[in-house]
Design a binder for these strands. Sequence first.
DNA 1: TAATATTTGTTGCAATTGCAACAGAAATTA
DNA 2: TAATTTCTGTTGCAATTGCAACAAATATTA
Lengths: 205, 205
Amino acid sequence: MDVSELAKNISDNCIKVQKKIFLSGDVITTYMEKRKQICILLSGKADLIRYDLKGNKDIIERFNQNDIFGEVFHHVNTNNELFVMATKKCEVLIFLYDDICIKCRQNCSFHTSLISSILELVLNNAITQNTRIELLSKRSIREKLLSYFNILSNKSFNKNIDLPFSLTSLADYLSVDRSAMMREIRNLIDEGFIAKQGNRIKLLF
Amino acid sequence: MDVSELAKNISDNCIKVQKKIFLSGDVITTYMEKRKQICILLSGKADLIRYDLKGNKDIIERFNQNDIFGEVFHHVNTNNELFVMATKKCEVLIFLYDDICIKCRQNCSFHTSLISSILELVLNNAITQNTRIELLSKRSIREKLLSYFNILSNKSFNKNIDLPFSLTSLADYLSVDRSAMMREIRNLIDEGFIAKQGNRIKLLF
DNA sequence: TAATATTTGTTGCAATTGCAACAGAAATTA
DNA sequence: TAATTTCTGTTGCAATTGCAACAAATATTA
């Protein structure tokens, strides 16, 4: 069963799962306080946030539609609480880790399909994480950019790439200084590796 | 049910799951050729390997006991095949993704507990990945080292840390040049942040 | 539409990092 | 035990990167 299908048949059938709406700025969950809580983002956008020792807001991860999150995915290593805060209106499915594998009293079919849906989401999550790790492992900005462009290009079977987010966000994603990244993009253009128009990149190799 | 428990009750009960032994140097699985295959490493060590365009061997990931892997975790983005190769004698549980959620003909209890075991492994995998991403996201070697030391220290509630692997491997894990990392460790010692004796680090802050 | 906020693009400069090369220590294998 | 491999530790140097600061272009909001 698909995740969007899943969302339709909830609430009435199964007491163990809740669907909630959050507005921009609302705290969806906190990892230390609400351990064992698993959330599926049916729609909207949210950030995983930590305030460091100096009080700086630190965005650890950005969640989009169909992302799954909770303390079970991200142990709180430091002593600082982690928050998930909605940055747009969010529809969220919430349940407890321990309830997943136990059949609910109604023995509802929803609960059965929940397990395979969750496995699917978790695996997608793993793929996304592995891709990011591979990019972050590259030693230079140039390698990070080229690897990233290659992945996008291979995915769409197209040498023309539309970047899925802003260059500022791309720098965050690759975890490099934005201005240094811009400089490297310029170098790639000047050396004839890529062409660029706005958020569209063309691979020339 | 625990994963090690799981390993005991296999083979006879369930035709969908195989246990195999591999020796050092053996190829356990290949991602493009054997898609949908999921492997659980019951014991031993193995590397996820890719040969790049120039034929260089590239170790993408190192697997240890209880790690779970397969193509469903790591889509093959480039056109190069990915191999998992045993670096020590390995005991491996092998099955197909599509068989997980389907009850096997014998309707064995093993198969039921398999699902929760897999979920547990996959979640552990996610935690490991998230930790690594957080470390790789740090902009300097110093931050990477201190964050890593802090995580280990918090985990053991101890300012004395025994590094779980060699400094060479640590540099690989943090994806930095080994000699540059050694230099930074020396700086941290000279500036009084840490003390070091072999593989034992003491945090002085 | 005007005002405000965000993103893009650029540059100089200082700091960090990777690379290469080496020697000695420690571990592994024959 | 000897031979070989891997790991540790160090350094000079060149290349890359982050930081800071700025102007122009877009996008967003009032």
